[in-house]
Design a protein around this nucleic acid. Structure first.
Lengths: 245, 245
DNA sequence: CGGTGGCTTGATAGTCTTCAATACATGTGG
DNA sequence: CCACATGTATTGAAGACTATCAAGCCACCG
């Protein structure tokens, strides 16, 4: 089964030296708010650009932590595994987002992180990030904002899980994807889901059948069109109204 | 109604200059891992020690962010308010824990934070923390670990909300309190809850009636004793087994 | 073209919520 | 200091929502 593969070797094989200076993600990634010289300095710490193919894991929970990873392109899911076998998807990550923030506290990765499509990541050695951050205060500040944003986002998910019904959760999820995609220059109304119903359900605290039913219901109500992995948001304003925003 | 009061003035009135050097929280708060000279340096940035009385808010969501607050003693709850009026408790904070981490990203506090008992907090101006952190790398690193820990904890809560039944959620909650209390020198088996059933339910994604029923059921099973706010964990090992650990 | 995993839909069962009534605790004012 | 008011907690019964079990369909890949 493809999903079970851990392909450290193929991952390393495709490495190359990237540059933040010319990267299209300067506005969404770590370089936010830095001037050209600072970005160039930041660039020196980015070790490799890795390729991670669909179904491969970037890292596993429990492995020694040394680096964060910025998503250069592609799509990832992070999931935690409890001792009793229960797993849950804790997040989906797209272009320009940072992977591994939970690993800093215990210096072990806190979740399994898998590519849901062929992807590339930039490795950011954490010790060096802290070091260079001392020389470039805006970089350190941007990093703090990224971590803080993750906390706020997690609080939003907690509210979703704690107080929303299935349809509302799914609508919230779709609108969140829509926002993040449009910020990256993609369509905010039409996109392909990279994850399965099961993975969506795991993230939203629902069973896959309930996810499927909720998709169908949102479609019946005319708010979206759904066909397999293809989603079209037909009435964004009403979707927002549904989730109380 | 006491809970609605915002008592900025009484809060400020009780300020005094604290010192991390002699603080009993050196092992759980920001100073973790620092030597004496470094702790003394850190101490210079702690502006005030505030008193916050039971029912008063330390800060409100949306207010301009300038400082984090370390809980010197007491107990706090943080809650978010959605536009449609739904609220949810996003966390409870005790001695040595940092309040306001979600505010860094947008430079506005992201949640309302209220004292559940008479408390004291140390104000940590964030800009100064970043500045002094540059001079004391272990301080900056400890701060990153604290933020990371918050992320991991939030992921744990997401798993709780997404995949656990009412009794399991409550058992997890009680064991979490137990662990944090024992780390601070209090009994790990017997303690007073500072929050109401409603607040527990809001945090755990349950209605207060369900929380009450779950308490009763855990008591019937002989795992805990509960009388109003007084809890005694009778069989910790079995509580852990119940939540699959 | 067959097989496998992913998806949809229906029927039933389980869990939690909602509504309601009562009891208890706490703090305020007389 | 007691009485009363208000917020808090417990418990029951009915209803809502989601999970579970099951069957069949569909898409994709070798």
């Amino acid at each position: 089964m493809l999903n079970k593969l851990v392909a450290e070797h193929s991952v390393v094989a495709a490495q190359q030296k990237p540059s933040c200076t010319t990267c299209s993600l300067r506005d969404v990634c770590l370089p936010v708010g830095l001037d050209d010289a600072e970005v160039q300095h930041l660039s020196t710490l980015i070790k490799h650009k890795f390729r991670v193919r669909r179904g491969e894991y970037l890292f596993h929970a429990g492995a020694d932590f040394k680096s964060l990873y910025a998503v250069k392109n592609g799509f990832f899911k992070a999931s935690t595994l409890k001792t009793d076998g229960r797993t849950q998807v804790t997040g989906f990550y797209m272009t320009g987002e940072l992977l591994g923030l939970g690993a800093i506290s215990l210096e072990k990765y806190s979740c399994d992180t898998m590519a849901l499509e062929d992807s590339e990541v930039c490795e950011v050695p954490f010790a060096k990030l802290e070091e260079i951050g001392r020389a470039i205060p805006p970089l350190m500040n941007q990093f703090h904002k990224i971590m803080s944003r993750e906390i706020v986002h997690d609080h939003d998910v907690m509210m979703l899980l704690g107080s929303m019904k299935a349809e509302e959760r799914l609508a919230t999820f779709l609108l969140n994807l829509s926002t993040r995609l449009s910020r990256r220059g993609y369509s905010s109304t039409e996109f392909n889901l990279k994850m399965t119903r099961h993975e969506i359900g795991s993230y939203l605290g629902l069973k896959l059948e309930t996810v499927s039913r909720s998709f169908s219901k949102l479609q019946e109500e005319g708010l979206i069109s759904i066909s397999n992995k293809r989603v079209k948001l037909e009435k964004i304003a009403e979707l927002y109204r549904k989730i109380g925003d």
